[in-house]
Simulated assay, not measured.
Amino acid sequence: MSDLLRAPAELKYAEELDWLESIDTGPKPFTWRLSPKMIRLFVLGSERSDGLDREIAQKWFGDRGIVERAIVTLASDRGLLLIGDPGTGKSWLAELLAAAICRDSTLVVQGTAGTTEDHIKYSWNVSMVIAKGQSRESMIPSPIMTAMEAGAIGRFEELTRSTSDVQDALISILSEKYVSVPELDDDAIVFAKPGFSIIATANSRDRGVNDLSSALKRRFNFVRIPVVTNKKSEAEIVRFRTEELLRRHEIELEVPPNLLDVLLQSFADLRAAAAAARSDDEKLESSLSTAEQIGVLEDAILHGNFFGERALTAHTLAASLVGSLARREPEDLAIINKYLHGVVEPRGKEEGGAWPEFLEGGRSAIASLS
């Protein structure tokens, strides 16, 4: 794994998955590698009441019922659609579920305006077709078709960003569970094996890009992933991801709890301001998600490690926040500047701590961008 920039979940947690599989005595649907209870435990982590000989770390932070409903859906005939705001962990949950069920989370199609039916069905190796003609050997199966043939989980990211033609092609796959290959005379149908299902994700902010047809909606169970608003849960997510970052870069650095509190509070303040805004011009373009908090902290840690004193400071954290969230000029800069002067400055005078340095770092960053 050290040779991979980012290992998929089935490789990253291979030893843990092997161990869970060795002690798993629960009923398993189809060809699943783990039982539903063990999958839930893998995703949400173990508790003392589970009575295990080792601790299983929590990997996705969210409601237990969401994970259970997702697992039950994948054991049914319907596909699973995880829908929510950007940065709520939809893709990460989909990856963990696929890794636990079939030990392969890489059968992924990325939905874009350029995604075609070939990406979810099949295409052809042109040189082989010229040399030998069209055959199963010269056919290039899509990740979804590969999942069908293996009885595995296929993933479709950003479903609503793909065109209606692509979405319509999914309807027959989800309902009939096969793909016809009219170019072939023999072996012209690829059937899905037991265990095949699709996990799709959709950004609730992009629902107007290419809305799903009612026919496709009926083939999916919708599971909504809410924005994390609980500070304790959000702190756990940010801390978990930051520790992964530090291990990947082999950085020995402690994130001071007071600076993590400053980051969490600043995002909470900006979210409250966005909720009270009367127009889009008064809101930051950023979704202010947990994922963006992690991005701000990652940027600050790396900057401090490479160009600072190998320590995280409030000044660097503020500069990273401004650099990450100010996407429109001058609108976003004006919103952040208003926040710094209207909220951070009075708080710094009243509470002290890291806030005055955070204010100075934000001001300096805005001045350099203005």
Rank of each mutant, 00 (worst) to 15 (best):
K232L: 13
A70I: 03
L212F: 14
R205P: 03
A272K: 09
A14I: 01
A98W: 04
E68Q: 08
P356N: 06
L20T: 11
R136T: 02
L312H: 01
N305G: 10
R40T: 02
D3I: 06
D280K: 08
G352K: 06
A99I: 00
S2C: 00
A291I: 01
L270E: 10
I66A: 14
A188N: 01
E236K: 14
T316I: 08
R219W: 12
T163V: 03
A150V: 04
V67H: 04
D281R: 14
K28T: 01
R219C: 12
W124Y: 07
K37H: 08
D118Y: 14
M145F: 08
D261E: 15
L11V: 06
V43C: 10
A314F: 08
E298T: 12
A131G: 02
E243A: 12
V179H: 04
N230S: 06
A57W: 10
I366D: 08
F61N: 03
V43W: 08
T163S: 12
E47R: 02
P256F: 09
P36N: 12
R155K: 01
S135I: 04
K90N: 08
F307T: 05
E55H: 11
V179K: 01
E360S: 07
R69I: 15
R248F: 14
Q167G: 10
A113S: 12
V108Q: 05
E250I: 06
V262I: 09
L96C: 12
L246Q: 10
S162I: 04
G111R: 00
H119Y: 05
S162R: 03
